[in-house]
């Protein structure tokens, strides 16, 4: 954590400086959190909604931030919970349709003007969508964001050992998916 992050965290306790400090922290963490969410929900519009909810929850719940974890870790936790509840709500709304929510996400991705990947990258996204939600989260965090297992352990409140095993398992499944596609 940089000196300015520490300073901003301290300013959050001062009611006069609170809004300014929080805005500065939004600017500091918005990109990281956006990509964390976007990799799970895939569409830009959905990622934008979840990101707004994340910061709004953070702002309204500032008194719940006890300072025993880093502010970024706390925001990551909120973003993760918001993303998972967004997906579970989507799943509930999707119950009546024939396809799964993953099919839905993939279909939207293929027609999304904000998707700029090549065929191999699209195939990777398809493979990632075959993973269970929590494993998808672990895979994305490790593979694309290169977050350490210790940091991930703090965010997801799961042991590093379990996260390592989950990531390893996810990689195997994705490789298997690629091999099956080849056959």
């Amino acid at each position: 954590m940089t000196a300015s992050e520490t300073e901003l965290q301290l300013q959050l306790k001062d009611s006069h400086k609170r809004a300014g400090a929080f805005s500065a922290l939004v600017r500091l963490y918005q990109e990281r959190l956006y990509w964390h969410i976007r990799k799970m929900v895939l569409s830009h519009e959905d990622a934008n909604d979840v990101l707004q909810n994340t910061f709004m929850k953070g702002w309204n719940g500032l008194d719940n931030f006890r300072g025993d974890a880093q502010f970024s870790t706390w925001l990551y936790r909120i973003a993760t919970n918001e993303t998972l509840s967004f997906l579970s709500n989507k799943r509930l709304r999707n119950l009546q349709s024939l396809g799964s929510i993953e099919d839905n996400l993939l279909h939207n991705l293929q027609s999304d003007s904000h998707f700029i990947g090549n065929e191999a990258q699209l195939k990777l996204q398809k493979a990632i969508l075959t993973l269970p939600e929590k494993q998808r989260l672990v895979f994305n965090m490790k593979y694309f964001e290169e977050i350490t297992y210790d940091q991930m352990s703090e965010i997801l409140e799961t042991s590093s050992g379990a996260l390592k095993a989950s990531y390893h398992h996810a990689v195997k499944k994705i490789e298997k998916y690629f091999n099956e596609e080849l056959d």
């Binding site: 830009h44 700029i116 990947g117 065929e119 191999a120 990258q121 699209l122 490789e175 690629f178």
Partner: peptide, 17 residues
């Protein structure tokens, strides 16, 4: 395109904002 391994695909995100 032929199937590629994870290493070949790389870690760049295929999305834009």
């Amino acid at each position: 395109e032929p199937n590629k391994t994870l290493e070949q695909i790389g870690t760049e995100l295929p999305f834009k904002v």
